[in-house]
Simulated assay, not measured.
Amino acid sequence: MPEQHAAMLEIAKQVNKARQAAGWSQNELADRAGVSRPSVVRVERGDDVNTATLGKIADVLGLTVRVSPQLD
């Protein structure tokens, strides 16, 4: 589970960085992505969110969500 949390924190960092680069507030990102502001906050905190929400936010920011196998 620690690897999963680390991955969510990296996603949070990238989403926050992209949002700020676009010059958008959390409210504006939420409106553009069609999600609630609390959902944006959860993503930017690295909390668990559903993939549909994460996909909408990533799409609006021009980011790609990728799943890859874990290396042992």
Rank of each mutant, 00 (worst) to 15 (best):
V35T: 14
I57F: 10
L54Q: 02
E28M: 08
P69K: 13
M1G: 14
A33G: 06
L9V: 02
A52P: 12
Q70G: 04
P2Q: 12
V43A: 05
A18R: 08
S25N: 11
Q26D: 05
A7E: 15
T53Y: 11
T53I: 13
M1R: 07
G62E: 06
V15S: 09
T53D: 08
M1V: 05
A30N: 03
K17L: 13
G34D: 10
T51I: 15
G34S: 07
L29H: 14
L54F: 09
V15F: 09
Q70M: 06
V60H: 05
D59R: 13
G46P: 11
R19P: 04
A6V: 10
S36I: 06
Q26E: 14
K17W: 09
N27K: 12
R66T: 10
R32G: 09
Q20N: 11
A21G: 00
M8Q: 12
P69S: 05
L61E: 08
E3M: 03
M1S: 01
N50H: 12
D31R: 07
A12L: 15
V60F: 03
L54M: 12
Q20R: 15
P38E: 01
W24E: 11
I11Q: 14
R66I: 11
T53F: 04
Q4H: 04
V41A: 15
A6M: 08
R32A: 15
M8R: 15
K13S: 09
V43K: 00
V41G: 14
V15C: 04
G34N: 11
S68T: 12
A6S: 10
A21H: 05
V60Q: 13
W24L: 15
V65I: 15
K17M: 11
K17E: 13
S39D: 04
P69E: 08
D59E: 14
D59M: 14
G34T: 13
A22G: 05
L71H: 02
A21T: 06
V40S: 02
V60C: 03
L54Y: 12
G23D: 00
L71A: 02
D48T: 10
A30K: 01
R42N: 15
D48S: 03
N16H: 10
P2C: 02
R45H: 05
I57C: 00
G62R: 03
G55R: 10
L71Q: 06
V60R: 08
E10D: 13
A22R: 10
A30F: 04
N27Q: 06
Q70P: 00
L29S: 12
S39N: 11
R37Q: 07
A33L: 10
L54H: 03
V41K: 10
N50K: 05
M1C: 01
Q26G: 13
K17H: 11
R66D: 15
M8P: 02
N27L: 13
S36C: 01
S25F: 03
W24F: 14
E28R: 12
Q70N: 02
I57W: 07
L71W: 00
V15Y: 07
V67R: 13
V65H: 04
A52K: 14
P38S: 01
N50G: 08
V49E: 11
G46Y: 03
D72N: 04
